[in-house]
């Protein structure tokens, strides 16, 4: 692994966005992910290398989150640092020069407006090397279906925070499976259990974002 990848991964993991950012205090005044990514491209490094550093950094913070060694604020800060680096990759994603592992469509289920869990999963999955299509909150079955149509071969994630809304997952999954039986569907959220996920026909369940990445990685392996 190159020194650059390691340095970028460290900045992602620690949430070091740019030179001006005050956090983390021990890296104050040093370059963050924004400068590192920019400089890498100027120096002719392959854009893939930036993606590699982001994936590594998010993988590390995601693992710590799963082990209760990092918490929501640390994960959000890492995601912010990752986004600062990924912004420099946008033209390469658009031209196809840098390819991602796959596409992940995500949204909270119809009726549910609580998006913190969904956002965390979206960030970590993006940091895992996937293109994320975030449909936002209160996503209807029709909207999920339209997005699958638009992104052939994508996987789908849906979350619910409420017991009153998690029941809406079942109908959406049924509709997806009828029209796109090959589509991998993951579910999650505070009231959702593995047992419930199995019952409603989901292909996967994870209590944390890192678990979702692991399932998606398995699909593309």
């Amino acid at each position: 692994m190159s020194e650059f990848v390691e340095q970028l991964a460290l900045c992602v993991e620690r949430g070091k966005v740019n030179r001006e950012s005050l956090y983390p205090p021990d890296l104050h005044g040093q370059d963050g992910t924004d400068e590192l990514a920019k400089q890498a491209l100027e120096q002719g490094l392959k854009p893939d290398t930036i993606l590699e550093g982001c994936i590594l950094g998010m993988d590390r913070i995601g693992a710590k989150f799963s082990e209760n060694k990092a918490f929501v604020p640390e994960l959000l800060m890492a995601a912010k640092a990752m986004t600062a680096a990924m912004t420099h990759l946008k033209p390469f994603f658009q031209s196809g020069a840098v390819k991602r592992k796959g596409t992940f469509v995500i949204g909270t289920v119809a009726g549910d407006l609580h998006d913190i869990g969904k956002n965390l999963v979206a960030m970590v999955v993006e940091g895992g090397g996937f293109e994320v299509i975030d449909l936002g909150t209160n996503v209807t079955t029709a909207k999920f279906l339209a997005s699958i149509e638009e992104h052939p071969g994508c996987s789908v994630g849906m979350s619910a925070l409420l017991t009153t809304t998690m029941v809406n997952m079942e109908g959406t999954i049924k509709a997806i499976k009828e029209k796109y039986p090959e589509t991998l569907v993951l579910v999650g959220g505070a009231p959702v259990t593995k047992q419930y996920a199995d019952k409603i026909g989901a292909d996967g369940y994870s209590p944390d974002p890192q678990g979702a990445v692991a399932i998606l990685n398995k699909k593309v392996a």
Binding site: G15, L22, Y23, P73, M77, I116, N119
Partner: peptide, 11 residues
């Protein structure tokens, strides 16, 4: 907002 506050804790 939860996410913004979480980042405020750092920034």
């Amino acid at each position: 907002g939860v996410s913004t506050l979480m980042l405020d804790l750092f920034e």
